[in-house]
């Protein structure tokens, strides 16, 4: 079964083409990295995947639900971690989680069970009572990932989730999310411009100037070279 499918997706801001005929699919339970330099169209792709706006060209399917025809079913199966932090800094971690659960129509005991489970998965349970402003960058990110799991989505989208974090926090978050796809069968799309966050067993998409240059298993695509060099060779040659 496909977790995420994007078919012939194009998008333009006026005359500027931001995405050009992008087609790919990610199997349920796979970790897929979307690698692209700044301005490659990653943010536009994420805006379309999360239905901030829609495109007339192409289709998006989340866990089998067509985003154009049944957007609410598709959104229900999707967890998102945006590039910009979206936590309420003055609220506790717990209250941030409750607010999000309510946006998904969850409340009471059911919501609390889900919140506790999600916090546990990211080792954040003991910080539930802390004000978010007092958490460090890495913990805030982990909280956002935990939050995106509250409604038990099948697909998790993360837009450059490690921006601004130190090496240890980056490693911890990358490991956590890889574990989620391995143990929980979650389909993950991880956008980044940092090649070292990607493992050889990950599926890899290289996006450049709005088009997909390459897709396949990361280990196979890099063909023995370090991935960062391969990435630079791919995107530098056509720049």
């Amino acid at each position: 079964m496909t977790g995420l499918r994007v078919d012939h997706l194009s998008y333009a801001y006026g005359a500027k083409q931001a995405l050009n005929d992008v087609t790919f699919s990610v199997e349920q339970g796979s970790f897929c990295a979307l690698l692209g330099p700044n301005g490659a169209g990653k943010s536009t792709l994420f805006a379309l995947l999360t239905r901030l706006f829609t495109s007339a060209q192409g289709t998006i399917e989340i866990a089998g639900h067509d985003m154009g025809r049944t957007p609410r079913k598709a959104l229900r199966e999707m967890g998102v971690v945006f590039q910009q932090p979206t936590l309420d800094l003055d609220l506790t971690a717990q209250r941030n989680m409750t607010y999000f659960a309510a946006l998904h129509g969850l409340s009471g005991k059911d919501a609390q069970h889900r919140i506790d489970a999600a916090l546990d998965r990211l080792d954040m349970r003991e910080r539930a009572g802390e004000i978010v402003r007092n958490l460090n960058g890495g913990h805030r990110r982990r909280l956002e990932i935990a939050r995106s799991l509250v409604h038990t989505p099948k697909v998790l989208l993360l837009d450059e989730p490690t921006v601004g974090l130190d090496a240890a926090a980056r490693r911890s978050i990358t490991d956590h999310v890889h574990a989620l796809s391995e143990t929980e069968g979650l389909t993950v799309l991880w956008a980044t411009h940092l090649a070292d966050e990607i493992r050889d067993t990950d599926q890899l998409l290289i996006l450049h100037q709005g088009a997909l240059l390459q897709q396949g298993l990361s280990g196979e695509l890099r063909a023995g070279k370090p991935l960062a060099d391969h990435f630079l060779a791919m995107t530098g040659a056509t720049a």
């Binding site: 999360t50 239905r51 229900r76 999707m78 945006f82 910009q84 979206t86 999000f100």
Partner: peptide
């Protein structure tokens, strides 16, 4: 919207 929490609101499955 600049901070992203509007986007969070809009990804809710409610209309």
């Amino acid at each position: 919207r600049e901070m992203g929490s509007m986007r969070l609101l809009l990804t809710s499955p409610l209309p």
